[in-house]
Computed example of a mutant assay.
Amino acid sequence: MILVLAAGAFGTLAIVGECRSGLIRTTFTAVPDRRAVLAAKALVVAAVAAVLGAVVAGTSFWLTQAILSGRDAGVSIGHPGAWRVVIASALLAPVAALAGLALGTLLRHAGSGVVATVVLLILLPLVLNDDRRWSAAAGHRLPCKAWLRLVETGGAAQSPYPATTGGSWLVLALWPLGAAAVAVFAGDRRDV
């Protein structure tokens, strides 16, 4: 969750910092096509967050397994489901960063953008539990719930309304696309 917080704040500050300082006006003067500028910014934010996510997920897996192997509890990367855990964990960073970028574009304030990102990515999944169908259906469409479904092992508690693995991958694929679209189109329409 620390990675989600850091990536979300990074995404928010990537746009808010430029808007707050007024440098966004200079950028838009140099390149009048706002959508192209915002799409490039979303691409750079996603790429940086993806590298960060891959480094953190890979390092976490290897360090955890090194500690657990000393206690005869470790698994190799070839273990069924190990790659799924590492890849899902790595993808969570660009999803959070682009969600932060979208909220930063909409709100144009660092504090409220970071708080909105935390509420959307961390607090809302805690409120939506799997006890009721509507709550489970809404929760399964959030990135952190999708990530939790992808990293759960065979011994995890069963929910009355479980999310599917394919649906969880779809959530992690569609959230960054939707967030990038919000950032590009909302930023294009807003006055700086």
Rank of each mutant, 00 (worst) to 15 (best):
A136V: 08
V55R: 01
V44N: 03
T117Y: 11
R84C: 02
A186C: 09
H79W: 12
R34K: 14
V127A: 15
V115T: 14
R149M: 02
A102F: 03
T26D: 14
T64S: 15
L98H: 10
A49S: 07
V45L: 03
M1N: 10
L3D: 14
I2A: 13
G139R: 07
W62Q: 09
A138W: 04
L172K: 01
F28H: 09
A39D: 04
D131M: 06
G167A: 09
G111S: 09
A93P: 07
L92R: 13
G17Y: 00
H109D: 15
A88E: 07
A36I: 11
L177N: 10
H109T: 13
V118F: 14
E152K: 02
A96D: 02
G58T: 01
D131T: 11
V45Y: 05
A156V: 04
A39I: 00
A180E: 03
T153H: 05
T165K: 00
F185P: 04
V37C: 05
D131A: 13
P80V: 10
A173E: 08
W62S: 11
P176L: 00
I2T: 12
V31W: 15
T64L: 12
L177T: 13
R190E: 10
G11H: 13
A90S: 11
G187L: 00
M1C: 08
V4N: 04
L13S: 11
L38W: 06
R108F: 02
A88D: 06
A116Y: 06
V85P: 04
A96K: 00
V114I: 15
G74N: 07
F10S: 10
L124D: 14
V115K: 03
S89L: 02
V151F: 07
L91D: 13
L68D: 14
L101P: 03
A7V: 00
R84S: 12
Q65G: 11
S135N: 01
G8F: 06
G139L: 06
R141V: 12
L123F: 15
V182H: 03
C19Q: 10
T26F: 12
A180N: 10
V51S: 07
A163Q: 04
G74P: 05
L103E: 11
L124P: 05
A73N: 07
